[in-house]
Design a protein around this nucleic acid. Structure first.
Lengths: 333, 333
DNA sequence: CTGTTAGCGCATTCAC
DNA sequence: GTGAATGCGCTAACAG
């Protein structure tokens, strides 16, 4: 029941060998005679020794820590990505420090500097707003993987989902069901994914020869409440629609609630489709038809890509594409 | 546009002073003449210097890092707590490394060892399963705050919500509404919170002179799907009930869906109440009546308590109590 | 195969 | 007020 943390030196003394020998055994750096190895192992157990990762890091220049920047902790979206990230870490000896960027490029830059000062071995930026050039500047210090945009530089890698295509699929599904007046609750215009989805919405409509009615697209912010407000607005302005496409699942939840309050049935009266396929979307009433984004795989892939970047590797990354998941909020008109 | 990370020594050279002077300025350890201070500041900016936290940590024995153990990343429950934890960190100079315990005491012990090896300055264990004595053993190395149990040791602190009372409130509400046959979807029996809630359910029933019918309580696991399965089971065994109390919101979601599938209306045909008040529960259809647990505050409080423990302080911690939030899934029988 | 030496970047005595 | 020296715990040459 040794007291405070013992050091490698303690172990060496205890085992009657030199510190380097202990180090060698710990790292498998060189062959060591069996008797000494036994002695050292015993001493390690006896002193309850665990190497000081700080000291190791100082010496080797690597901390076995990777930094993750999410925009919003406590969001089911980032949560699910983090799940993948975490699984990607499993068994690698790396740990992650997670910080939040709050959708602000300035804050992101700040967090990256912080992470860099902590000497993380690499950084994953989730849905970053930071301009490419700044990102690449930081990437000169440590490899960076970013999601939500394509990027392919020596020390940085980015990949994105086909948001436009996903939105296209969603709206096309509605059109095939016979819907013509399809409302759209958008995301924040400043958000790249949001504008891609708006484009997909437009493209699907145009492809079917349906004019896009500006009165039917109302701006949201990706949160539940904005979906609710959007629907109320549509009602107030007396718009007619038989379906609504929400730019993400969370706003779809808000839409669903607003419709419920108006006494409008889903899907009998209006059809609804979301985007993301959050874990909860299979358990809404009724279960939500949505565009599935492989959130878990995005996280896992980002982590694996970063790990490879760190070890100097460069393998092209592949993530499953988005796909329409038809559940129970859509039906023929 | 300096290249690699510059060191304190670089700055000293650049400014024509000694390293110690730079250090003193950085830490405000001693008074330094103004001209030198200017020179150093300029040199810092010019070389784009940021102190190496690893080296600082090695020297000072503190890493300004705190370790968080959650059981399940990508769970709205822990997510919301993490939100509070994260806010508690804001502006403190600390960062957190988050690891998962997966509800396993063994894994928790393993993670704590890992965190200790990384020399975190303190640890927050969320909903830990680790026995008190093991916890206290680890606490000899670093202060630990644990949620989900009371604990008050020199270097460890634990606090918990009144789960029994919360459950009591929920069931009492149902009883007041005229319900007599109230089903209960429990959590895993091994889980302390789960058994407290079961106790609260029983107590409320008994208090009202209603016999508890074992056929009406079915075991779940806190996940959506178990709520669904539970209801199906109740139907298969032809139980009659006019209300169901789910041990947490997530299983309530499953209950809600199962009821929907059976064509049972909520709340017209059966009333439903959950536990936790997850962020999403205000947006289910209809919005869920539930027992609110101040998850955000739990996280914030845990963080503050730990920070105080680290600085040698010991202030009794206060967290808002649980409370019933009546929304739209309950109505008189 | 193994011990000795030096140094990662910084904070802190200790002198001046 | 400020510089020189020392060491946090560990690994990596460098010599045997």
């Amino acid at each position: 029941m040794a007291a405070g943390p013992s050091t490698l030196l303690d172990v060496a003394r205890e085992a009657g060998v030199s510190p380097s020998t202990v180090s060698r055994i710990l790292n498998g750096t060189a062959r060591v005679s069996d008797d000494k190895r036994q002695a050292v192992m015993k001493a390690i157990a006896r002193t309850n020794f665990a190497p000081n990762l700080m000291a190791q890091g100082l010496k080797k220049g690597r901390t076995h820590t990777i930094g993750i920047i999410v925009q919003d902790i406590s969001s089911p979206f980032f949560d699910e990505i983090l799940h993948g990230v975490d699984d990607g870490l499993k068994g690698t000896g790396y740990a992650s420090v997670i910080v939040t960027g709050h959708w602000s490029a300035l804050e992101e830059a700040d967090r990256i500097r912080l992470l860099l000062a902590r000497k993380v071995d690499g950084i994953i930026l989730l849905s970053g707003n930071l301009p490419d050039d700044e990102l690449l500047h930081f990437a000169t210090q440590r490899p960076i993987v970013v999601t939500g945009r394509p990027l392919d530089a020596p020390n940085a890698l980015g990949f994105t989902m086909d948001n436009e295509h996903g939105a296209f699929l969603a709206v096309q599904h509605l059109i095939e069901l016979g819907h013509r007046r399809i409302a759209f609750v958008s995301g924040p215009p400043s958000h790249a994914d949001a504008s891609s989805r708006l484009r997909g919405y437009r493209k699907a409509l145009e492809g079917a020869g349906i004019p896009v009615d500006p009165a039917l697209v109302v701006e949201g912010n990706f949160h539940e409440n904005s979906g609710l407000i959007a629907i109320n607005h549509l009602f107030e302005t007396r718009q007619e629609f038989s379906a609504v496409f929400a730019a993400n699942d969370q706003s779809a939840y808000g839409v669903r609630l607003a419709l419920y309050r108006k006494g409008v049935r889903v899907p009998e009266d209006v059809s609804l489709v979301g985007f993301d396929d959050l874990p909860g979307s299979a358990f809404t009433t009724p279960p939500l038809t949505t565009v599935r984004q492989p959130l878990y795989d995005i996280g896992l892939t980002a982590m694996n890509a970063l790990l490879r970047l760190i070890s100097g590797d460069r393998v092209p990354t592949r993530v499953p594409p988005v796909e329409l998941v038809v559940r129970e909020t859509t039906r023929p008109r």
